[in-house]
Design a protein around this nucleic acid. Structure first.
Lengths: 370, 370
DNA sequence: CCTCCATCTGACACCGGTGTCATAATGTCA
DNA sequence: TGACATTATGACACCGGTGTCAGATGGAGG
């Protein structure tokens, strides 16, 4: 014989009222540990309506100071937390961002490129600083993307991270753009692509590497990475490197370029094949540190001294770069700043503000290898 | 003069109806890119009720095969995605887990312990495999925890990861337990704590390290890490190490123990102070790889050969362990399995099944340093 | 032809908040 | 004292799904 229709606060979970308005179960009152308190419960205990509770808890100027205090007090006692699902549903936004991390299709499930893990760390921090939560999801480039985080209202925007295969990437990005999904990409700005990107100045980074090697009067250069435009970031590093060499009269022929994806193993094999083909070189620029580390291994096996016989420069400045022997000279990307810019730009985009692509300055970290 | 009260499917966003049931804005129909389709929209286009749409999309056996196909067809055309907020609100569960990562209070904001980043990777994968999303949040141990993910219905359960300061940890965990929050801890099982844990057999790992060093007829041992019970994991590694040595007649006096937190720097300083105090040792066991790497640096600076003068064993098998010179012998924790167990156990707990603490077997990875 | 049951569908309450609107209470000023 | 502005509050629709219940339909069986 319970009634709970006329006054909404009677739907309070803990108390029930008879039709004559008398509390009939107060004596049995127990706060079930699992029964989370709702704003109706607070409304009842504070003796106000649920609307007022909602306003009070969000510090609306409309509620009386004394009322607000009482509501907060009760809320604290009941350990009340706003139900985010209800709140998000009503306000149509989630104060959550989603991070999609695209892995190199190495097949090896266990290891993730440490550079991206670093980025993940700084993105997480940047999100927290802005009061946003972060949904993280790893994606295989080949598989279907789970990019529906915004469609399903789980996230307000998406951050894309990874050396995506360009061809595959392209069509997906178009689709996201068509759906008006808010997203930011880490990587390279690509002409003709209208997505918003934050990236390291990869061209400038390649230039830094070239200049450093030129200063050491090296004469025969090789590049290991992807010199096609499949991977725009690697391509930009390559161009910066090659253009600078060319400007100083040192060309880079087809034979002095070896393809590799961003893994140690791939770098190792690429270097071995250069050596096997009898390519002469005393300076090596790898498109990433993992590649460079693989290259160091191949060089050591071949009896080449680093930096004596060959100078090696990597890219990223991952932790391992400082541990390996010889310590790796590399082009650092500022991951902390990158994470902040990705998050800030995405939030601006979501707010509808004008945002432009961001280029972050690279920095040469000099160690033993070059 | 729109009406949308009597029949719920009139609240469809794209069509509006006059009181006489005539479509009045059909000619103006445009699917706004931002206006995400709802189940009402599908209902309209498929010529069924919204209830049926909901059922059809979840493949309820109640709907006719032909109807189901039509609904799916329309849903696909409209690029419909279930609104997770609405769905979660109604079903009172979120198919999301939250990961709280506690950082060592190093003050240095930029680097995160690579071991935990690896764990993060495997946890993310394990979540995806189970159809759950993952919210990631980094926490400073000192700060207030943001453990309200479950209270606010953002997550169904929480995974706690990190070498938490035990004292601080304890009271928070009690609170979580009191609130009946579903959570799993990575770390060590601690007597008297009622939380569910998944951990590496740290004691057994310490034992592996000791046995390996004993086999090499080393005679003077040191341990670097935390030998107090502030950090239960390190303590268990220490106990396994010490007990095994003791069982073989090799003690470990107070002076042969140096405290360090899990950073390279801390390991470096701890090792230096051992050397400065003139402690003689030819075998060193570090509670983590980062500590071991710091120790290697200190040893090298002091002119000690590794493994000639001193054998060094670490714990974790982070990526850097194989890059550093000499390559680090270490006790590996199976992060892939750990991630899976954390997720699986948490899901079992959420489902109300009986779950017990899980111990994962460690494995000695033999490299150059010992 | 009526009963019974299986199959399918629509109406509706509900989840727990947010925002709008109406209104009661109080104060201000002519 | 009456007109009006100000302040504080409650009622209620609404967000977009899910689950229950009632009812429509059609075929089988007596």
């Amino acid at each position: 014989m319970l009634s709970g229709q006329q006054h909404t606060y009677w739907t309070c979970k803990f108390y029930s009222f008879a039709d004559n308005n008398q509390v009939i179960t107060q004596n049995k009152y127990t706060m079930k540990p699992k029964g989370k308190a709702t704003s109706f419960d607070i409304a009842h205990f504070a003796g106000v309506s649920q609307s007022t509770v909602s306003r009070a808890l969000r510090n609306s100027p409309l509620v009386n100071e004394e009322t607000r205090r009482r509501v907060w007090e009760v809320a604290k006692q009941l350990n009340y937390k706003v139900d985010k699902n209800a709140s998000n549903l009503r306000t149509q936004q989630s104060s959550t961002l989603a991070l999609l991390l695209f892995e190199d299709p190495t097949g090896d499930e266990s290891q993730i490129n440490p550079f991206f893990l670093n980025m993940l760390g700084s993105i997480t921090r940047a999100c927290a600083k802005q009061g946003y939560d972060l949904l993280v999801s790893f994606q295989s480039t080949s598989q279907d993307w789970r990019a529906d985080y915004e469609d399903s209202h789980r996230a307000d925007g998406i951050i894309l991270l990874g050396y995506g295969d360009y061809m595959d990437y392209q069509s997906r990005l178009q689709q996201l753009l068509a759906q008006d999904t808010k997203f930011v990409c880490w990587g390279a700005t690509v002409d003709g692509r209208e997505d918003l990107t934050v990236s390291c100045d990869n061209y400038g980074g390649g230039k830094l590497a070239a200049e450093h090697l030129l200063q050491q009067n090296r004469s025969q250069y090789v590049f290991i990475g992807d010199a096609s435009d499949h991977s725009p970031e690697f391509f930009a590093r390559f161009k910066g490197f090659r253009d600078t060499l060319t400007a100083h009269g040192c060309g880079l022929s087809e034979r002095q370029i070896a393809n590799a994806i961003s893994t140690e193993e791939s770098g190792y094999h690429a270097t071995r094949s250069l050596l096997a083909n009898n390519i002469q070189f005393d300076a090596l620029f790898a498109a990433s540190d993992l590649i460079a580390i693989g290259a160091l291994k191949a060089l050591k096996e071949a009896g080449k001294e680093v930096p004596g016989d060959v100078a090696v420069i990597g890219f990223d400045n991952i932790a391992a770069a400082s541990f390996i022997s010889p310590a790796l000279t590399t082009v650092q990307q500022n991951t902390t700043l990158a994470g902040q810019m990705l998050v800030n730009n995405l939030l601006s985009l979501i707010r509808g503000e004008a945002v432009t692509d961001t280029l972050l300055p690279p920095k040469l970290i000099m160690r033993r290898s070059a």
